[in-house]
Design a protein around this nucleic acid. Structure first.
Lengths: 217, 217
DNA sequence: TTCTTTTTATCACGGGCGTGATACATTGGT
DNA sequence: ACCAATGTATCACGCCCGTGATAAAAAGAA
């Protein structure tokens, strides 16, 4: 017989409530009382599962980052074997992976919104600082690794430095995310992917490594 | 004989205090009391010059945006006449103008920090919403206009659409700003300009419009 | 001077916050 | 049945907040 309440599940319910409050009203409104109301719980219950406000915020931020990581990991697992893929296929994989970071649907839009809120809050909240740094290094590192792989296979346009291209792509993606979340009517999801695709098209070669020309789109 | 206190100057002093608090502790800490303390004033004095907290925040945000606008306007005034400029000169002007938006020194870093704080807050604070939208349209519009001019003079690489390039450049700049402000140790000012220059080099032709080839670097 | 306006300084109120402490209810094992 | 552990629900305290009201001080004009 299953226990009536699964503590881990409860914590996740509370975290989901945190996310909803953050998306709707901003991180500043994510007080214990507001979160408890949003979760349909009593504040006492919330406090039973989290030592205090700070631990809740920390756990929520960590959960958000884990969620993104897992989504990316799943995407990587499902990717075809890069060793046997053609140049076009390799570029498609990269395209799909990076698009996964953009707020293209409601789920990812909410996630990116929460991401932005926590990251900006971490600038002045030392409790979140370590996690923010870790996340930033992770995303930047991932993009850097992708570009190095591209470069190693000759998919990166000659003359381009993978490191500075990583900075550029990192900034572009974060900028698209930010503007899309802050000004959804000025930057539609379609415009986001168009901008990203345009960028990728410019920094990658558009011919197959085997020599087959795949010009145009 | 000058009046002992100039109301307009006082308001600016208070706004400066707001900016210092926002940069140091975040927008959430910019309460009337904290701001008054930072300005070395009594909370009563602050309230004498501002109707309330909301008006202060609105005025501070507007001041910040005006400051950026004026800096850009000054930069444009000092620019050489584009009609008689060579292609390289035109690209240098654009380079300088866009670099003005990046947090390359302490002054601009503080400004961008305040910008990010207010813009993200505006997402859920309806009082700041209009201003934020105006600012976003302004920055995006400026970049769009620049690229259209470039395109008209043939400085933009053939095959590139000024509008989607504007989205891309807009996102890149905002992303560099964001990452530089949130993770200064992961993205130095130098890395910012390198990334931006690399981008501009890729979307512009590197030959003069008069036909002189300046290929290579 | 006297009077009016401007500026500075306090007080008090209601409200939201995190949190410690505590009581009550429910559960699951013995 | 009993009990210990777990989960729920409140209360109270101190803190900070924005704000209305009001007093006190300073400045400038008559």
């Amino acid at each position: 017989m299953p226990k009536l309440v699964d503590p881990a599940a409860r914590r996740l319910e509370v975290v989901d409530a945190v996310f909803r409050v953050v998306v709707r009203d901003g991180l500043a409104q994510a007080s214990l009382r507001n979160v408890a109301d949003e979760a349909g719980l009593n504040i006492g219950s919330v406090r039973h599962y989290f030592a205090g406000h700070q631990e809740l915020m920390l756990f929520a931020m960590r959960s958000m980052l884990d969620r993104v990581s897992h989504r990316l990991a799943r995407h990587i697992e499902e990717a075809p074997d890069l060793a046997t893929a053609s140049g076009a296929e390799r570029r498609a994989v990269m395209d799909g992976l990076l698009c996964e970071l953009l707020p293209l649907d409601d789920v990812r839009r909410a996630e990116v919104t929460v991401f932005v809120e926590f990251m900006t809050a971490a600038r002045t909240d030392s409790a979140l600082g370590d996690l923010a740094r870790e996340a930033a290094e992770g995303s930047r590192g991932l993009i850097t690794r992708i570009l190095y792989r591209l470069s190693a296979r000759g998919d990166l346009r000659p003359g381009l430095d993978p490191d500075t291209e990583a900075v550029r792509l990192w900034g572009l993606i974060d900028g698209l995310c930010l503007n899309s979340v802050l000004h959804p009517d000025l930057l539609s999801p379609d415009a986001c992917v168009t901008a990203l695709r345009g960028h990728l098209a410019q920094i990658t070669t558009d011919s197959d490594a085997d020599g087959h020309s795949t010009r145009g789109r």
